[in-house]
Amino acid sequence: MKLNFYKYEGAGNDFILLDNREQHFNPDQQPQMIKKLCDRHFGIGADGLMALQLKPGYHFEMLYYNANGSAGTMCGNGGRCITAFAKRLGIIQNETNFMAVDGPHYAKISENGDWVSLKMIDVDDIKMDGNAFVLNTGSPHYVVQRSQLRDLDVFRAGREIRYNEVYSSEGINVNFVEDMGDHYYVRTYERGVEDETFACGTGATAVAMAMARLKNKTGQTTITLRVTGGQLSVSFDYDGKKFTNVFLEGPASFVFEGSIDV
């Protein structure tokens, strides 16, 4: 069987996308296949795979799978990339309402189709684990500040937290952040990929919220974040208790399309 696919990336966070509107492919029954497709040595190579499917009342539904083949939680950069993909397929023009695992999402896309702003879920539950922030922005995140972040072994440091006795059963994404003055520098270890990724959208959102809470930055705010693969921005309203009108914004670029025997 030949599987047609598209490759997209958002600030270096890369994905395999499938047009599954006719549901020829059942990803829930293919974890090993997904793992192989995402493998950078034996497959196409990606941080995750997404299937675009029909959903009554919405332009489409986004199904996301981790690089290890498991069903994923919300992926912010994935949501931005699948929006660009939907525009390429002619499903939408410049705006969309789609369904994801954490509920409905609105997104808007630039005329040239490579810059996407995605509305994220509201957040009002932020816990502390020592000096780290723990919150869910569609996926669970751990946010901790580090100096000299460029020199950090993110794989080792992130893995220690992700697999410690508190988080090992469910897993957590681990974000290290350094305040650079006019922006935050972020590096993320992602569960499901089990390695550092070039960017993480829900992670960038979590970092922006954690830093706003740390500095008691209320009102309407836009925060710029530099990640390994480029730049993202997160805007929101914060009243000191709850984050609303949350938007993750950044690039979403088509890389190539092809077919592979599966």
Rank of each mutant, 00 (worst) to 15 (best):
R159G: 10
Q93M: 03
C81M: 08
N26L: 14
M180N: 03
D195L: 01
R191L: 02
G192A: 03
V234I: 14
N66Y: 12
D124W: 05
Y184T: 02
T224W: 00
G10V: 05
H59T: 03
T218E: 13
I126L: 15
A208D: 00
F247G: 01
L214S: 12
A252K: 00
D125Y: 07
T188F: 02
A204R: 04
Y184K: 01
T202K: 12
A252D: 01
N112P: 02
I172D: 05
R80N: 06
D182C: 05
M120L: 10
N173R: 06
S253I: 12
K242V: 13
G90R: 06
D19M: 00
V134Y: 05
G203D: 03
D19A: 03
R156L: 14
G171K: 09
F198D: 12
G76R: 04
K242H: 09
Y64F: 15
V177P: 02
F198G: 00
C81I: 04
L63F: 02
D182G: 11
N20H: 01
S235T: 12
R146G: 00
A71E: 10
P27K: 01
I44C: 01
S139I: 11
V144M: 09
D237R: 12
K215H: 15
V255K: 02
K36M: 12
C75V: 04
D124G: 10
E170P: 00
K215R: 11
F85L: 10
L214G: 02
M128Y: 09
F42E: 01
R80Q: 04
T73Q: 15
D102A: 15
A100R: 08
E170V: 07
G203E: 07
G230F: 11
F254R: 02
V227F: 01
A86N: 11
L63V: 07
F155D: 06
E194I: 04
Y185P: 05
N77V: 01
V193R: 07
G10D: 11
Y106R: 14
Y106D: 12
K108W: 08
L118G: 07
R80I: 09
E111F: 05
L52P: 11
I92W: 02
V193G: 05
G130E: 06
G192L: 02
M1C: 04
E9Y: 01
R159A: 07
A204S: 15
Q23Y: 01
M62S: 06
G69T: 06
Y58C: 07
L17H: 00
V227S: 06
A210L: 05
D239C: 06
A86F: 11
G258M: 00
T244E: 12
E95D: 15
F155Q: 14
G192H: 03
V177T: 04
G201T: 12
I121P: 02
D261C: 07
H141W: 00
S70F: 04
I126V: 15
L3H: 13
G130K: 10
D153L: 09
E170N: 12
E61R: 15
D102E: 03
L225C: 07
N13I: 06
S117M: 14
G250I: 08
I82C: 10
L248P: 14
